[in-house]
Design a binder for these strands. Structure first.
Length: 426
RNA sequence: GGUGGGAUGGCAGAGCGGUUGAAUGCACCGGUCUUGAAAACCGGCAUAGGUUAGUAGCCUAUCUAGGGUUCGAAUCCCUAUCCCACCGCCA
């Protein structure tokens, strides 16, 4: 949620900045609603003040009336009339406040000045590249063919067990998958100073509201058949960020890392990436989350992106970093870097991590604050997060980039200690 | 699943129909004292919204959340959520 004060003081500027995100702010509607809100609030508070004053006065009158045994009805009757007027006024105020709240909840975060201008994916800006694209003497096989041949990936069985867009891994490939998440966790905890957390994979509505998935993006989520409105997490960002919902953090920064499965309905992506394990309903991800003071969130984004990249570097996977343009930016993000890894079978870079600064957008929805020692105020924290990395796609990248002509896979050096020294999967 | 007990400011913890936005302690901030520090003492210290030129004053809301009773609710009643204890069941 953006700050409503910003809309009140600088409506035209905010509207212009949101345009860069392809969002049309209905300024006229906002002004009209806010004026109505103001009128109704002033009236309501006036009536409340009257009621409070009257209740105080009448208390004494009633007490003396009772002591003297006289009638108290003339006193209470006036209170009743006041109360009726007040209730009506309160209702109309609450109604308009709810309308404004709904409007506010649907407004995306304001993009940072450094976000490239553009309306879609094509306008994203490449920031840097790393690694040589491997020149193979043969046509690279795709990861699903490789995995199936090695008897380590079986999509048919996954489809039998559940359905499309699920994966069944076995043997060395399953172990490699586990080694990857362990490797990532180890690097981030022991070298980048993140604290490992294990969190629920089912969350409630409030948590999804806090990070911005709800109410706007319900169709992307798997919802449980349960009166408590539970959902499977689409990313660890949701449970991890919400650890501090409604809390006042004593000491910043806080850096957390968590390995979780992620569940996405992939509604609206029919026909996209139907082969292989690029786009699944369930995948593992190691997520980095930072809670920082506002003045540090931009450097935190650079740092966190660097932490995610270091995994790709250690695995020696060719990749690039791009800055998403305004039109491609997520709802809650003020700026996002995507890390894309080279996928030989597609001759393309594909997203493997997304690192964003949400500024105070999520913190405002979550009411996560800290004590600003300079001003003495309670201020909203900033949240920054990113994948470090998507485990399933990392497995894909390794299978494809480390393949040999005979279909065997060389295991990256850094993973061998986690694979009992194994060098090659045949 | 059953039965009890809870949820109050940054934290701990009083209050249990009107004078309580809320005692007290801790923490924090300012001051006195001191060569300096500690201790002691004095003072300050909730959040959000409205009004306003105003971080001044005034007004409103907020004691887990939502309903209700009452002229008046932190305080009484109902519901939900979470926590704690004991019993039953169980990875």
């Amino acid at each position: 949620m953006i700050d409503i004060k910003l809309l009140r003081t600088d409506l035209q500027r905010v509207a212009a900045e949101l345009k860069r995100k392809n969002f049309n702010l209905d300024s006229a509607l906002f002004l009209a609603l806010d004026q109505q809100r103001k009128d109704r609030q002033i009236l309501t508070e006036l009536l409340q003040a009257q009621k409070n004053k009257y209740a105080k006065e009448i208390g004494k009158l009633i007490q003396t009336a009772r002591a003297e045994g006289t009638n108290i009805e003339e006193h209470t009757a006036k209170g009743e009339v006041l109360k009726k007027k007040l209730t009506a006024s309160e209702n109309s105020m609450v109604q308009i406040q709810n309308e404004m709240q709904e409007m506010l909840e649907d407004i995306p975060n304001i993009p940072h000045q450094t976000v490239p201008v553009g309306s879609n994916e094509a306008d994203n800006l490449e920031i840097s590249r790393y690694g040589e694209i491997p020149k193979l003497s043969f046509d690279p096989a795709d990861h699903s063919d490789l995995g199936v041949k090695l008897s380590g990936i079986d999509f048919e069985r996954a489809a039998k067990i559940t359905g499309a867009r699920f994966t069944y891994l076995s043997g060395t490939i399953a172990k490699l998958h586990r080694a990857l998440s362990n490797f990532m966790l180890d690097v981030h905890t022991s070298e980048h100073n993140y604290k490992e957390v294990y969190v629920p994979f089912i969350v409630n509505r409030e948590s999804l509201f806090g990070t911005g998935q709800l109410p706007k993006f319900e169709e992307d989520l798997f919802k449980l058949e349960d009166s408590r409105e539970f959902y499977l997490i689409p990313t660890a960002e949701v449970p991890v960020t919400n650890i501090f919902r409604g809390e006042i953090i004593q000491e910043l920064p806080i850096k957390l890392v968590s390995h979780t499965p992620c569940f996405r309905s992939e509604a609206g992506s029919h026909g996209k990436d139907t082969k292989g394990m690029i786009r699944q309903h369930q995948f593992d991800k190691v997520e980095l989350v930072q809670f920082v003071e506002p003045q540090h969130s931009w450097s935190a984004l650079e740092e966190l992106t660097h932490h995610a990249r270091s995994i790709l570097q250690r695995l020696e996977l060719p990749h690039r970093c791009i800055a998403l343009c305004g039109g491609d930016l997520g709802f809650a993000s003020a700026k996002t870097y995507d890390l894309e890894v080279w996928i030989p079978s597609q001759s393309k870079y594909r997203e493997i991590s997304s690192c964003s600064n949400f500024t105070d957008f999520q913190a405002r929805r979550m009411k996560t604050r800290y004590r600003n020692l300079r001003t003495g105020n309670l201020d909203l924290v900033h949240t920054v997060n990113g994948s470090g990395l998507a485990v399933g796609r990392t497995l894909v990248a390794i299978l494809e980039n480390y393949q040999s002509k005979d279909g065997s896979i060389t295991i990256p050096e850094v993973l061998r200690p986690l694979m009992n020294g194994l060098e090659k999967i045949k």
